[in-house]
């Protein structure tokens, strides 16, 4: 009920913004802002200049991904491995005395390879599942400290400085996207701080974006493997690769019944 109410308000706000600034994109919705398309494209052009950002992120962009599950290869873990490397997840070490199965279940993971099989036909679908960067993120709703937040450009992440490790957000997330760091981590990358007692999840390689590099490790790795199952880009820019891909092919949200308006969309499901 409150969700409906929120959406109603939201729609109006978007319509207002649509008039005031630029074409609005609610996820997949094909931009209604043909009128202001030029303006948006110009803004994107200046903003995308490959340099570290000096202005705070803004809602000119909404970052997201398009995943074509039909291209996602069985047995391939390129995206997961690349993510591990990029975000220092491979530097986690198994705590002394823990058993292997428990550790595999507990270690922080940002992307999971999910395999679905249709019982009737036996058809197998593979897909990478990560934080869906919901427009209405339940993880943010439940966070008691405000640590779980949505950046202006749509990236949902955790401010570890204020996270108290209550793990409410892990329970609230419908996609099992979040991980908890149980132990002190010895090795960490400068770009990916990590410490005991905080929750974390995919941040769409925010450090790359902030540097002016519009890419994610997973999409890049997938393309390098010649699978091209993951496309990353700006959902608000009709000329971006992600929007181009979405324009060509029907896509859907996982658990669209929850009306979270996810930033990651899937085709071939």
């Amino acid at each position: 009920m409150s969700r409906e109410e929120e959406q109603r308000v939201d729609t109006q706000r978007r319509r207002f913004l649509g008039v005031a600034t630029a074409g609005t994109v609610a996820g997949t919705a094909v931009g209604s802002g043909a009128l202001t398309l030029g303006g948006l494209a110009a803004a994107v052009a200046t903003d995308a200049a490959s340099a570290p950002r000096t202005e705070p992120v803004s809602k000119i962009h909404r970052w997201g991904m398009f995943v074509d599950a039909s291209k996602c290869a069985d047995g391939c873990t390129a995206c997961v491995d690349a993510c591990d490397q990029e975000n220092g997840l491979n530097l986690q070490s198994e705590p002394h005395g823990s058993n292997e199965a428990k550790w595999q279940n507990q270690r922080s993971v940002w992307i999971r390879k999910v395999k679905l099989q249709d019982r009737a036909s036996g058809h197998v679908t593979n897909l990478p599942l990560m934080c869906q960067h919901c427009e209405h993120p339940p993880c943010v709703d439940v966070c008691p400290t405000g640590a779980s937040f949505k950046r202006a450009d749509g990236i949902v992440m955790v401010d570890r400085h204020t996270c108290i490790g209550c793990r409410y957000c892990m329970m609230a997330c419908p996609y099992k996207a979040r991980s908890f760091i149980h132990e002190q981590v010895d090795q960490k990358l400068t770009r990916a701080p990590r410490g005991k007692g905080c929750v974390e999840s995919c941040n769409l390689c925010a450090h790359r974006l902030d540097e002016g590099d519009i890419s994610t490790a997973c999409a890049q790795a997938c393309a390098d493997e010649n699978h091209h199952a993951i496309v990353f880009g700006d959902l608000k820019d009709p000329t971006s690769p992600v929007r181009q891909a979405m324009a060509k092919q029907a896509s859907r949200q996982i658990r669209e019944d929850l009306q979270l308006n996810t930033g990651v969309r899937y085709a071939g499901l």
Binding site: R53, V57, R151, D153, H207, D210
Partner: peptide
């Protein structure tokens, strides 16, 4: 700088902890 970086995505300024290190 911490808040500017986490919320604003600005990492290129001279007051970053990684710069100290």
């Amino acid at each position: 700088q911490r808040d500017t970086t986490v919320y604003g995505g600005i990492r290129s300024t001279k007051h970053s902890l990684s710069g100290c290190v």
